Amino acid sequence: MALNNTYDARLVQQETAVGAGVQILLLALLGTAIGMGPAGWLTGLAFAVASWAVLSRALHRSRLRSFGPANRVTLGRATLVGGVTALVADSFESSPPVTLFVGLTAIALILDGVDGKVARATGTSTPLGARFDMEVDAFLILVLSVYVSMEFGPWVLMIGGMRYAFVAAARVYPWLNAELPPSMARKTVAATQGVCLLLAASGYLPRSVSLAVVLLALASLTWSFGRDVRWLHRTSRIQDAEVEEMLGLAPEPQTVTS
């Protein structure tokens, strides 16, 4: 048992320290290239430290014997997301170079489809890897929502905040934590959110078209979450009724006499 603990500690120190180091290096490159201000630096460093701490804790609790190639891809994507986060924070003081912003974000979105394929190809899929991937996706959408909201208004934040609102609601209503069935529609909607927000943020489209793209993204995401919540609620009620029936708690049918 002591050997496993030592191995896990070494793994955490090496993998997460490399990720934090690369994140700081990227911030240094961005700072040199665009003269990033204090807001961008502080936000980027906060992201690096928070990512290192959360990932280190998750690795220690999961007791993984190997970080795995897929998680390394996700860690690289998280590094890019940290760079995008710094640029968005810096945009409150000065607009970031469009090409740089779009390039970092586009690579992060493209790599979203790579880590899952690597995990399946190498047989290294783990619950931690899936959660890591999902959290990086969610945070990137939140950051892009913040950036686009500066142009179209705070309602855009609903796109980035919807997933976090769902997680918060699940703490109050445990039935929301049930496992959902696989859905290609859900995956498609989730995958298009980042693309739609990036198109709107890039400024390459007319403002009216960008607005329509963001509205479409919000509508499709609302539909997807609404459909899943309805399914979870219906399934929960069915399961509760089955339990009550098994325990003999279901109300007996009333007999009508004439």
Rank of each mutant, 00 (worst) to 15 (best):
G76W: 02
A53S: 11
A201Q: 03
L128K: 07
R207P: 07
L128G: 08
T126E: 08
V102E: 06
G37T: 02
E244H: 13
V114N: 03
L11A: 11
W175H: 13
S95P: 03
T43K: 04
R230S: 11
F166H: 13
I110V: 15
T105R: 03
V81A: 13
R227P: 00
E93Y: 04
K187G: 07
T43G: 11
Y173I: 13
V102T: 07
K117E: 12
S56I: 07
V195P: 03
L216F: 15
R171E: 15
M246C: 09
P181D: 05
R230M: 15
M150L: 14
A190Y: 11
V195D: 08
A185H: 04
S56F: 03
F92A: 13
M246I: 10
V118G: 04
V143E: 01
A191M: 08
A33E: 14
V143K: 02
M36Q: 09
L205F: 15
S236F: 09
A130I: 03
R171F: 12
R163Y: 12
M184H: 04
A20R: 12
E179T: 15
R57S: 15
D90R: 04
F152V: 08
W155Y: 14
S183P: 10
G21H: 05
A2S: 09
T6I: 15
R227M: 13
D133W: 08
V209G: 08
L100R: 14
A200C: 04
F139D: 03
T192H: 07
R120F: 10
M1V: 12
G82T: 00
R163T: 07
D90E: 15
R65I: 06
V243S: 06
L247C: 02
L30H: 06
D228N: 14
A89W: 02
W155M: 09
D90P: 08
P182Q: 01
E93A: 14
A178T: 13
N177W: 09
M36E: 06
T105G: 11
A89S: 06
P182S: 03
L59F: 04
T122F: 13
V143C: 05
T122E: 12
G31M: 01
S258C: 01
A86D: 02
A200W: 01
T85V: 13
M134K: 07
I110N: 06
I110S: 09
T126C: 11
V18S: 00
S258E: 10
R237P: 00
Y173K: 09
K117T: 02
L211R: 05
G194C: 05
A165S: 11
T235Y: 05
R163N: 09
A89F: 00
V189C: 00
P96N: 02
D115G: 09
S183Y: 05
A106H: 05
A217T: 01
V102C: 06
A191F: 07
T192I: 12
A106N: 08
T85A: 15
L29N: 03
V12L: 08
C196G: 13
R57M: 14
D137M: 00
M184A: 06
I141D: 05
V214P: 04
Q239C: 03
A78E: 03
Q254N: 04
F166A: 06
T255W: 10
D112G: 15
V156I: 13
F166L: 09
L3F: 12
R57F: 15
P38S: 08
P96T: 09
T79G: 14
I159W: 03
D133P: 06
V98C: 08
P206N: 03
A2L: 11
W41E: 00
G129D: 04
I141H: 02
V148C: 06
